[in-house]
Simulated assay, not measured.
Amino acid sequence: MSSIPENQSRIVLRKRPTTGIVAGYESEDATFAKEVAKVPRSESELKEGDVLVKVEYVSLDPAMRGWLRDARSYLPPVQIGEVMRAGGVGTVVLSRFEGLSKGDKVSGITGWQEYATLPGKACEKRKIPPGCSLLDYLGPLGSSGQTAYWGIFDVGRIKSGDVVVVTGAAGSVGSMVVQLAKMKGCKVIAIAGSEEKCKWLKESLKADEALDYKAPDFFSTYREIATKKYGYIDVIFENVGGEVLDRSLLMLKPGARIAFCGAISDYNNPKPKGLTNYQAMIAMRVKLQGFIVFDYQKRYPEAEKEIAEWLRDGRLERKFHIAQGGLEGCPQALNDLFEGKNIGKMVAKVN
């Protein structure tokens, strides 16, 4: 008899939020709903070329808030009644794809559910080698690491001696960027949201400066350090947007580059204020470039090879925050992410 259960739990989009996500499932305003769904229990129930994956961990990322908007973007929005989109890692339990067998570990877009039916061809490209950490394929060897790598090297085009500012520096992407910039010989000013995070960034990740944006004197301290101590900024890796970015525009060197990865400060704001200091970009001939990591998919193996080597030799540190509540706790965990309760990569354990 199959060890695969007849039914599984999954979480679907119930209502599009206008501000923050409404966690829980009982309120009529709740963003998500829980569902019970059938699970394929034999290969004959799969389409040719598909695999069934038992999901073990799912990723929690700021970009997921954007996927809930019914708006034009780089991916279509999650539809009402659809399983919430999310990256995940797990084990193949059924396969009708020649390149994958039962027991293989893979990563892919699994969604918030216990079992995911996925195209085998896509999973084969993200097959996890035996003995490797599943969590690393949601963090440094997954989309977080790829985003950091291509954003700072290809978009930011850092070089030795550059003064680099990283916002959201204690998150999964930001913490990678801090380390990559230091490896390149840059001076790094890391910005995060607590004394604990700043301590980790300085002591463990070796940021030259770590500033708490919640501190009452943050902006005056930031300007003093960026302009007087380091002589203005060459590169910003921007995860947060909002007022910090606006103030930063006044501290840039001629020809500065801004790798615009995210704007977490405004994702839950229905009416973002926007930038007021943008004219400084003209005088300083600044390049601000938004980028999407999926644009680099064909080059993922290049980054993965280097990152894996840096992990093996200890040059890269990673930290994971396991959210409370498992699969059912994912909506609240996403809110916790926006409140900055994590250090490093936030994930939820499903099975």
Rank of each mutant, 00 (worst) to 15 (best):
C198A: 04
D212G: 02
T167E: 01
G151A: 07
V286N: 00
E306Q: 05
N335P: 01
I80L: 15
G99A: 03
G81R: 11
Y232V: 05
Q179S: 13
V164F: 08
K121R: 11
Y222A: 12
L134K: 03
K345E: 13
S44I: 09
S44L: 10
Q113W: 11
K271C: 07
E209R: 14
F291H: 03
E306M: 11
G329C: 14
L327S: 09
S175C: 08
E243M: 07
L141N: 09
Q289D: 02
V53Q: 03
V92E: 02
S44N: 15
G344S: 12
V53C: 10
M281H: 03
L100I: 01
L275Q: 01
T227R: 14
E309W: 12
P140D: 10
S143K: 12
Y74P: 00
E317P: 01
S59D: 09
Y222E: 01
G120K: 03
S194V: 12
L68R: 07
L134Q: 05
P129N: 09
G325I: 13
M64W: 09
M284Q: 15
S172G: 13
G193N: 06
G262V: 02
T31G: 09
S175I: 04
L68S: 06
E56G: 00
K298V: 06
Q146D: 04
Y115F: 15
G151N: 02
L275T: 00
E26N: 14
E45N: 09
S248F: 02
K125W: 08
K15M: 02
S3A: 11
D246R: 11
C330F: 11
K105E: 03
V58C: 09
N239I: 00
A116W: 10
W112T: 09
A122M: 14
L337M: 13
S265T: 04
L60T: 08
I225D: 06
K102E: 12
C261D: 04
M176L: 14
G131Q: 01
G242Y: 04
G255F: 14
G120Q: 06
E203A: 13
G344N: 05
L316M: 14
N269W: 01
A259D: 00
K305P: 02
L252I: 08
V164Q: 02
A280Y: 13
S59N: 11
K228G: 08
I11E: 07
V164K: 04
Y300A: 07
Y74F: 14
K253T: 04
K349S: 00
P76T: 05
R69G: 01
I292H: 02
E243W: 09
A71R: 07
V165I: 13
K121P: 02
D154R: 15
Y267N: 01
A23G: 12
A210Q: 06
N342T: 07
Q146R: 14
V106H: 05
A323R: 09
H321F: 15
A116S: 14
N239Q: 07
S204N: 11
A348W: 07
K197Q: 08
V39P: 00
V92H: 02
Q79A: 12
L316H: 07
L138S: 07
K54H: 06
F291L: 02
F153R: 11
I264D: 06
G255D: 05
I189Y: 03
P77I: 08
F294N: 03
D162R: 03
V93W: 12
V22W: 10
T227F: 11
F218P: 02
Y213I: 04
R10W: 15
G325H: 14
Q289A: 05
V93T: 04
A63Y: 14
N7A: 15
R315W: 05
S2K: 08
S2T: 15
N239K: 06
L327M: 08
